[in-house]
Design a protein around this nucleic acid. Sequence first.
RNA 1: CGCGGGGUAGAGCAGCCUGGUAGCUCGUUUGGCUCAUAACCAAAAGGUCGUUGGUUCAAAUCCAACCCCCGCAACCA
Length: 472
Amino acid sequence: MTKKYITTAIPYMNAAPHVGHAMDYCLADVCARYNRLIGNEVKFQAGTDEHGGKIFRKAKEAGIPVEEYVSRNVDVLKSFLEKLNVSYTDFVRTSDELHKRNVQEIWRKLKEYIYTAKYEGWYCSGCERFITEKEYDENNGLCPDHKKPYERLEETNYYFKVGEFKDRIREAIVSNEMVILPEFRKKEVLKLLDESPDVSISRPKEQLSWGIPVPDDDSQVMYVWFDALSNYITILGYPEKQISDWWPAEVQFVGKDVLRFHAIIWPAMLLGLGLPLPRKLLSHGMVLCDGQKMSKTVGNVVDPIEVIDKHGVDAFRYYFLRHIDTFADSDFTWEKFENAYNNELANDLGNLVQRLAVLVSKNQIDVVDEDIDLDNYREYLKLMDQFEYTKAFDYIWERIQELNRKIDEEKPWEMAKAGKTTELIDCLSVLIRSLLDVSWMLSPFLPETADKINNIFKGKIEPPKTPLFPKN
RNA sequence: CGCGGGGUAGAGCAGCCUGGUAGCUCGUUUGGCUCAUAACCAAAAGGUCGUUGGUUCAAAUCCAACCCCCGCAACCA
């Protein structure tokens, strides 16, 4: 039994989760369930990123103490994970005492790579942040949100020497010591690496009160990325505990938008701590709605809960794992969702289970439990190991279509009418066996459905009272 | 000349690395079947593979130039 540590990016707690957040969790959950299926022991982290000025302001706007504000959002996220049927094993909050203490220790350990420097730039007191020169030029020196002119401001911050580690990071990426998937993202990161400057990792307290204090300096708090990235190891107990059982992570799932932090700053931190780099970084695409990035102003935000409540978790997971590309951006529309649901889940799979169950219920046969022989699943295992989840689905669906075809060709109902019992039983046994294979392969993706199928064909076989995927 | 991805049937995509009759899913049309959730099975229609030029016996595939879309450029999942 091999130990595998799987992580997800921790969402920033300034709003309720939307379908975009589901990507990370769906992918990681499949990976986790798949690993358990083939006999590995899995630690599966999830958590929340709770510090920073943005959250502080949001809480203030809502008129709630910031601790309560984030706690509420954490509850929302947790119930979301439950609804999504995500099998995480550990949950970290960056406001946890243990996390805070450990991050401060991490800071201390990295001290030789931390220095102070002055930063001077354009600043908007409304946004409470610095803006780039380019942004300044584009907006002609006036903040579009606050209609106020930018001010020239200077502040002293702590910086982390990312530059020290660039060569080693590049080497690790090129040699696949740290694999970045997909390949085109790897190229992107290698390019970005050249231009990566040292990063600021603190802010003056007056500007950012909601954060972890910098050790031995009351005037500064940590910048959120330093705080947030550390979660992957503070949850394991680092540096208080030995973490070599679980670290390095087998795979860290991140959105393409945060890949740069995970592929450059995070490895720099790890190298500074003398820890190994994660084995794989998987960067997935974004979910678009009607071809556009989701945004409240456009009004195209899809509420994942609505989808789940309407058609069930597995329908949701199915759509996001098969029809949202694992690596590239893809589109969610209700039309596409309904299509996939009706054609693929209800007609192909649901109806197959139904017709087979009915056939067998009229001619009861015992299904013998057979041990899974992984050799029969080589193609599937290969795709799963490469995170080719949409292709794995294609493969499974070919099996499903094959079964439907086979039933049509062999016409077991005619065997029944003709009284050819032996032939009939042989035929049905083979069909059921194949369907259970399908169910096995499906189980990391659609755990509920796989369970239902297994239960139908266990003991006395009866067609399910309600279809697997009812149409409406 | 910032970087990256892409332009293939009505839609969504594969094929391109390793040139050789253009493929998949959905949709459309027709036929078959009746065990099944009006489901399932079979067949058909539908493409000058972004444009132009080059290499080659042969180019969606290799090379060059150009056009058009879409992401990214320090906190956006």
